[in-house]
Amino acid sequence: MNGGRAIILGRIREALRNNPAPRPHTSHSQSEAAADHNGHAQREWLPKVGETLPERIDLFAKISEGLTTEFQRVPTMSAARHLITKLATESQWKKIGSHSHQDVDALLEEIELPIVRTEKGYAINDLESCDAGITGCDVLVAQTGGIMVSVESAGGRALSVLPPHHVVIARTSQMVPDLTAAFEHVKQKYGKQFPSFLSFITGPSRTGDIERILVLGAHGPKRLTVILLD
């Protein structure tokens, strides 16, 4: 059962038949077929991203600051482990969520807290009561200070949004310039077998719904930490 499918499609076709709309007035010469563009056209207009990796990392760091994403660069995995242990003690974590992922597992090797692992399913209340969710990611996006996660790279849909502190581990090789590159990565990595969930996370959860005043941690994490491994 699909409702008024035939009727709606008929109405659409009727509305469009021999009834062309004026083309949008554009000040720039656009490619005639916008539908055929591959996402590169927009790079000309969107915010500028540096050419080299260090420039991109700097841009990501700068935007992170504005977003209050805690961005930490570490030289080695053992330094990363040190960092996460420190975070756990300082924030008095009692229980954390994580998932099966090479870098995440390596990162948590020395953590001795109870861990709720999501890859095989979990009880919602169990995950909800975790103090932090530790995940990997697909890519980091320099242009927006964003982190792209998916079912695969972040242990499902909820691990990266339900606990109040989200910690992401990434490698510099995962830094891409912009959203277009992130989508290219997705298409390359998954082909047609997309995960059912892909998300750009750009800073900790926030709201401005009360007098337009910024409050962090509306429904998602209050804190977002990105650990970038060189």
Binding site: P47, I63, G66, T144, G145, G146, V161, F194, P195, S196, F197, L198, S199, F200, I201, T202, G203, P204, S205, R206, G220
Partner: peptide, 12 residues
């Protein structure tokens, strides 16, 4: 904003 906090794509 540069980007809103969450932009999520659901495929099924």
């Amino acid at each position: 904003q540069t980007m809103t906090c969450y932009n999520t794509m659901y495929a099924g």
